[in-house]
Simulated assay, not measured.
Amino acid sequence: MTEDFAADSPDGEITADDSAPGEFRSGFVCFVGRPNTGKSTLTNALVGDKVAITSNRPQTTRHTIRGIVNRPDAQLILVDTPGLHRPRTLLGQRLNDLVRETYADVDIICVCIPADEAIGPGDRRIIEEVNATTPRTRKIGIVTKIDRVGPEKVVTQLMKLSELMGPDAEVIPVSAKSGKQIDVLTDLLVSLSDEGPAFYPDGEITDEPAETMMAEYIREAALEGVHDELPHSIAVVIEEIIPREDSKVVDVHAIIYVERDSQKGIIIGHKGSRLKQVGTAARTQIEKLMGTRIYLDLHVKVAKDWQRDPKQLGRLGF
């Protein structure tokens, strides 16, 4: 643990050693954990902008999303990953494999555990697996969502996580929502990174293709307000991106895929009202991304049981 998190301190902050002056440091950092532990929200908070979609639905993240933190003394490449879970579909298995491939090839692994939930068998299994398969990789245990609980609960969670992570791992509490400890976490990540060059131009915050980001924004909008198993059944493919001649408008044609006809009806809504809401919300995000006006053309199609079909998974980018 970097330092004790004092329950009676006014702000509960901890500090990390600064890197030596004059050194430029860089490193790849991977966030892992079970679904819905705040990994994507934390990635966005550290970058200072939105690079990963967020939702209160588990398994929102389906790709490794890279966010880039630029400082005068360092560059951190943050890799947000899908939540590790017991897979029920081929998609779930492929996402788990993706996470394992990712954390095997980074400089620092951050295991995320929410402050407001008990550490369970799934968390222990992830920590044991990470420690066993990457014994030489630097590790940090992060207690997320500390704004939801009191200081005593945070201290208890930190102690439990520290015990599980092992004596060589740093442990730190953060709140991505309030920003508490975000700067301290950044300093800690920089201090654990090796001296090295910047991998991306200064000011760049992600290397995700615009097409991927557009699809993610549409899926994020489609996830709002849906229930049960529908969130897992939604996939989005960008069909075409066509700038209009003699106009600053860009036409974006996209398809939202679901697995059943009943799900298609839910996404479209009464007389198309739900799909219109999705389009409005997604277009706002896409226009911010592209810096221009967007005409978003959305269609909903059924790809029966695509999460279990290898061929359909391939066509949908998995």
Results as ranks from 00 to 15, higher is better:
148 R>Y: 03
193 S>R: 03
146 I>H: 11
190 V>Q: 05
171 V>H: 09
225 G>S: 01
142 I>E: 05
228 D>C: 00
146 I>K: 05
188 L>N: 06
155 V>P: 03
231 P>A: 04
242 I>H: 11
143 V>Q: 13
212 T>R: 15
193 S>T: 03
168 D>C: 06
247 S>C: 05
230 L>K: 09
190 V>R: 05
152 E>K: 15
221 A>S: 10
242 I>A: 08
213 M>Q: 10
249 V>M: 13
195 E>I: 10
224 E>C: 03
162 S>I: 05
146 I>V: 10
144 T>S: 15
191 S>H: 09
163 E>R: 08
170 E>R: 11
146 I>M: 08
232 H>I: 01
151 P>S: 14
251 D>W: 12
213 M>A: 04
248 K>S: 11
230 L>W: 14
148 R>C: 08
190 V>N: 06
243 P>C: 12
182 I>T: 11
236 V>A: 06
227 H>R: 14
195 E>W: 06
181 Q>G: 03
200 Y>I: 03
173 P>D: 11
212 T>F: 13
153 K>H: 14
214 M>T: 02
234 I>M: 10
180 K>A: 06
217 Y>M: 05
193 S>M: 05
204 E>Q: 15
155 V>N: 10
191 S>I: 05
161 L>M: 12
225 G>H: 09
149 V>R: 02
222 A>D: 03
165 M>C: 07
217 Y>T: 01
182 I>C: 11
252 V>E: 02
250 V>S: 12
244 R>T: 00
145 K>G: 05
188 L>E: 10
247 S>H: 14
241 I>Q: 10
179 G>M: 07
168 D>L: 14
205 I>Q: 11
207 D>Y: 00
238 I>W: 09
190 V>P: 01
235 A>Y: 02
225 G>F: 04
231 P>V: 01
240 E>D: 14
150 G>P: 04
196 G>H: 10
205 I>C: 08
243 P>E: 11
200 Y>Q: 06
154 V>M: 13
191 S>D: 11
191 S>P: 04
243 P>G: 02
